[in-house]
């Protein structure tokens, strides 16, 4: 079947089997390998993308769900539109060492950006609850939580300008 959607700001039309997962479509057909498949059972969160602005696990999402929707992947995450700057959340992860091997990072970032966009003044407890669906085997989460708090504050500050 043919589906049309907006992918990272660009109109996109693809021909897919209905039994295609969005994670597979992105990685194999569209060559966007920033979205990772970790557990493939919707527990680890390495595959999180934004569907119409909401965080979803692309390994548990069928391609037909994209039709008419807007999809944002890690490749589309950026600072000011059109700039080469990284998103404030990406900057915060670099600044506060919120990553080591980097495998979970795209999913962490997508979840974190959605979390911060939904609620401007996040507490540490809310960040930890919000990251429940994202597993990191390197960091022990401490620096990820610090990064998300800092990134959320930076997103807030940028909005106020």
């Amino acid at each position: 079947m043919q589906i049309s959607f907006t992918l990272n700001g660009r109109p996109t039309t693809v021909d897919v089997e209905p039994a295609t997962l969005v994670a597979e479509l992105l990685r194999e057909q569209l060559n966007l390998t920033g979205t990772h498949i970790g557990c493939d059972t919707s527990q680890c969160g390495a595959c999180v993308v934004h569907l119409d602005g909401l965080p979803v696990k692309s390994c548990t999402l069928l391609a037909p769900a994209l039709d008419g929707a807007t999809l944002l992947t890690i490749e589309g995450l950026q600072g000011a539109p059109g700039s080469n700057l990284m998103h404030p959340m990406q900057e915060a992860f670099r600044e506060h060492h919120g990553l080591q091997c980097g495998f979970c990072t795209p999913g962490m970032l997508m979840t974190a950006v959605a979390l911060a966009a939904e609620k401007p003044d996040l507490t540490e407890a809310e960040v930890r609850h919000g990251l429940e669906g994202n597993i990191c085997r390197c960091t022990g989460y401490q620096n990820i939580v610090v990064s998300v708090m800092a990134g959320a504050a930076a997103m807030n500050a940028a909005k106020g300008e």
Binding site: S42, G45, L51, V56, K57, T111, L115, E132, G133
Partner: peptide
Amino acid sequence: IGDPAVRSR
């Protein structure tokens, strides 16, 4: 229920 991504869908 689940986690934020599960609650979206």
